[in-house]
Amino acid sequence: MLEGKVKWFNSEKGFGFIEVEGQDDVFVHFSAIQGEGFKTLEEGQAVSFEIVEGNRGPQAANVTKEA
């Protein structure tokens, strides 16, 4: 699992990017966010995740919000 911070997330469109120190930003789709209820992320929020190869390159999977 990697750790990063949410760079930005558009809850209307359901996607955004996660910043990872020393690496390129990683695309995140709302469907990759773990948990119940409305799936969104806040700018600057700490998250842990895995990287998988998507249709358009690397993207986040199994995203969990850090306490």
Score class of each variant (00 low, 15 high):
27 F>E: 02
66 E>G: 15
59 Q>R: 11
41 L>T: 03
45 Q>T: 09
10 N>T: 07
2 L>T: 12
32 A>I: 03
22 G>D: 07
18 I>K: 00
7 K>Y: 04
21 E>S: 15
1 M>C: 05
32 A>L: 03
60 A>N: 01
55 N>R: 13
37 G>N: 07
42 E>C: 07
50 E>K: 10
29 H>L: 07
51 I>K: 08
3 E>M: 15
43 E>A: 14
18 I>E: 00
30 F>Q: 05
33 I>S: 02
44 G>K: 08
16 G>S: 00
1 M>E: 08
24 D>T: 10
25 D>N: 10
1 M>H: 11
64 T>S: 12
12 E>F: 14
48 S>K: 15
57 G>E: 03
11 S>V: 13
4 G>E: 01
47 V>T: 03
32 A>M: 07
34 Q>E: 15
47 V>Y: 02
37 G>S: 08
55 N>T: 13
58 P>E: 05
48 S>C: 05
54 G>D: 09
54 G>M: 09
27 F>T: 01
34 Q>N: 15
35 G>V: 11
22 G>S: 08
63 V>P: 01
56 R>A: 12
38 F>K: 09
35 G>H: 10
19 E>V: 13
56 R>I: 09
9 F>I: 03
58 P>T: 10
26 V>G: 00
3 E>C: 06
2 L>A: 10
22 G>T: 06
55 N>K: 14
5 K>I: 07
63 V>F: 01
62 N>Q: 09
21 E>F: 11
58 P>K: 12
4 G>I: 01
7 K>S: 05
53 E>V: 10
22 G>V: 03
36 E>G: 10
59 Q>S: 07
46 A>D: 08
57 G>M: 05
67 A>H: 13
67 A>P: 13
35 G>T: 09
36 E>N: 11
37 G>I: 05
57 G>T: 04
60 A>F: 01
39 K>H: 07
46 A>I: 12
25 D>I: 06
10 N>D: 09
3 E>R: 15
33 I>P: 01
9 F>H: 01
27 F>K: 02
14 G>M: 03
20 V>E: 02
1 M>I: 13
49 F>T: 02
62 N>H: 10
11 S>I: 13
9 F>S: 02
49 F>Q: 00
64 T>I: 10
36 E>T: 11
10 N>E: 05
62 N>S: 11
20 V>K: 07
13 K>I: 08
18 I>Q: 00
2 L>S: 09
37 G>P: 07
55 N>G: 12
54 G>L: 10
48 S>Q: 15
3 E>N: 15
57 G>I: 04
52 V>Y: 10
53 E>A: 10
51 I>A: 04
34 Q>Y: 08
53 E>G: 10
12 E>L: 13
64 T>Q: 15
40 T>V: 10
42 E>T: 13
8 W>N: 03
8 W>H: 04
19 E>P: 02
18 I>W: 01
25 D>M: 08
18 I>Y: 00
19 E>A: 15
30 F>T: 04
48 S>Y: 10
28 V>C: 05
28 V>P: 00
28 V>G: 01
56 R>D: 08
1 M>G: 09
30 F>D: 02
16 G>N: 00
11 S>D: 06
49 F>R: 00
18 I>N: 00
33 I>Q: 02
45 Q>I: 09
12 E>S: 13
66 E>F: 13
30 F>G: 03
23 Q>E: 10
47 V>W: 01
64 T>N: 12
36 E>A: 11
9 F>G: 00
26 V>Q: 02
28 V>S: 02
26 V>F: 05
21 E>T: 15
49 F>E: 00
7 K>Q: 03
2 L>G: 09
40 T>I: 10
47 V>D: 00
63 V>D: 01
49 F>M: 05
17 F>Q: 03
27 F>W: 07
11 S>R: 15
66 E>C: 06
36 E>D: 12
65 K>P: 11
38 F>M: 08
41 L>C: 03
18 I>M: 03
30 F>W: 13
32 A>G: 11
56 R>K: 13
58 P>R: 12
26 V>H: 02
23 Q>D: 09
32 A>N: 11
40 T>E: 08
